[in-house]
Simulated assay, not measured.
Amino acid sequence: MFLEREEYAILRSHVHADSVDLVDALAATGLRWSEMAALPPRDLTLHGSRPMLRVQRAWKRIDGGKALGAPKTKRSRRTLVLSPYLVQPFKRNCAGKQPNDFVFTAPEGGAWDSGGFYHAWTRAVSTMRVGRPRSPPRPVTASPNDRVSTTSVTRPQSHDLSHTHASWLIAKKVPLPGIQARLGHESITTTVDRYGHPLAMLDDEIIEAIEWSMNPMAA
Rank of each mutant, 00 (worst) to 15 (best):
residue 16 H to M: 12
residue 16 H to C: 10
residue 18 D to H: 15
residue 18 D to N: 14
residue 19 S to D: 13
residue 19 S to T: 00
residue 20 V to C: 13
residue 20 V to M: 10
residue 20 V to F: 13
residue 24 D to L: 14
residue 24 D to I: 01
residue 24 D to S: 09
residue 27 A to Y: 09
residue 28 A to H: 13
residue 28 A to Q: 07
residue 29 T to P: 05
residue 30 G to Q: 11
residue 30 G to Y: 14
residue 33 W to Q: 00
residue 37 A to C: 07
residue 37 A to F: 09
residue 38 A to V: 01
residue 38 A to G: 00
residue 39 L to E: 03
residue 40 P to I: 01
residue 40 P to D: 05
residue 40 P to R: 04
residue 41 P to H: 07
residue 42 R to V: 01
residue 43 D to Y: 11
residue 44 L to A: 05
residue 44 L to S: 03
residue 45 T to K: 12
residue 47 H to C: 04
residue 47 H to V: 05
residue 48 G to A: 10
residue 48 G to I: 06
residue 49 S to Q: 07
residue 49 S to G: 06
residue 49 S to M: 00
residue 50 R to E: 11
residue 54 R to F: 07
residue 54 R to A: 05
residue 54 R to T: 00
residue 56 Q to Y: 04
residue 58 A to S: 14
residue 58 A to M: 00
residue 59 W to I: 07
residue 59 W to C: 03
residue 59 W to Y: 12
residue 60 K to C: 02
residue 62 I to C: 01
residue 62 I to V: 15
residue 62 I to D: 06
residue 63 D to M: 07
residue 65 G to K: 14
residue 66 K to F: 13
residue 66 K to G: 06
residue 66 K to E: 08
residue 68 L to F: 01
residue 69 G to H: 03
residue 70 A to V: 07
residue 71 P to A: 03
residue 72 K to H: 04
residue 73 T to R: 10
residue 74 K to E: 13
residue 76 S to F: 10
residue 77 R to K: 14
residue 77 R to L: 11
residue 77 R to N: 11
residue 78 R to T: 05
residue 78 R to D: 04
residue 79 T to G: 05
residue 81 V to Y: 13
residue 81 V to N: 10
residue 82 L to H: 09
residue 84 P to C: 08
residue 84 P to A: 09
residue 85 Y to L: 11
residue 86 L to K: 06
residue 87 V to M: 10
residue 87 V to T: 05
residue 88 Q to M: 10
residue 88 Q to K: 14
residue 91 K to W: 03
residue 91 K to A: 04
residue 92 R to E: 03
residue 94 C to A: 12
residue 95 A to C: 03
residue 96 G to P: 01
residue 96 G to M: 06
residue 96 G to Y: 08
residue 97 K to F: 05
residue 98 Q to P: 03
residue 99 P to G: 01
residue 100 N to M: 06
residue 102 F to Q: 04
residue 102 F to A: 02
residue 103 V to W: 04
residue 103 V to C: 06
residue 104 F to Y: 07
residue 104 F to D: 01
residue 106 A to D: 00
residue 107 P to C: 09
residue 107 P to K: 15
residue 108 E to V: 08
residue 108 E to L: 13
residue 109 G to S: 04
residue 109 G to K: 11
residue 109 G to F: 02
residue 109 G to I: 02
residue 111 A to Y: 09
residue 112 W to D: 02
residue 112 W to Y: 15
residue 113 D to N: 05
residue 113 D to I: 03
residue 115 G to T: 13
residue 116 G to R: 05
residue 118 Y to V: 00
residue 119 H to L: 12
residue 119 H to Q: 12
residue 120 A to Y: 13
residue 120 A to Q: 14
residue 121 W to H: 11
residue 122 T to I: 12
residue 123 R to K: 15
residue 123 R to T: 13
residue 124 A to T: 04
residue 127 T to H: 15
residue 128 M to I: 01
residue 129 R to P: 00
residue 131 G to A: 14
residue 132 R to S: 00
residue 133 P to N: 01
residue 133 P to D: 00
residue 133 P to K: 08
residue 133 P to A: 12
residue 135 S to W: 08
residue 136 P to E: 12
residue 137 P to Q: 06
residue 138 R to F: 02
residue 138 R to T: 08
residue 140 V to K: 13
residue 140 V to A: 15
residue 141 T to W: 12
residue 142 A to T: 06
residue 143 S to E: 01
residue 144 P to I: 04
residue 145 N to S: 07
residue 145 N to D: 11
residue 146 D to L: 02
residue 146 D to K: 07
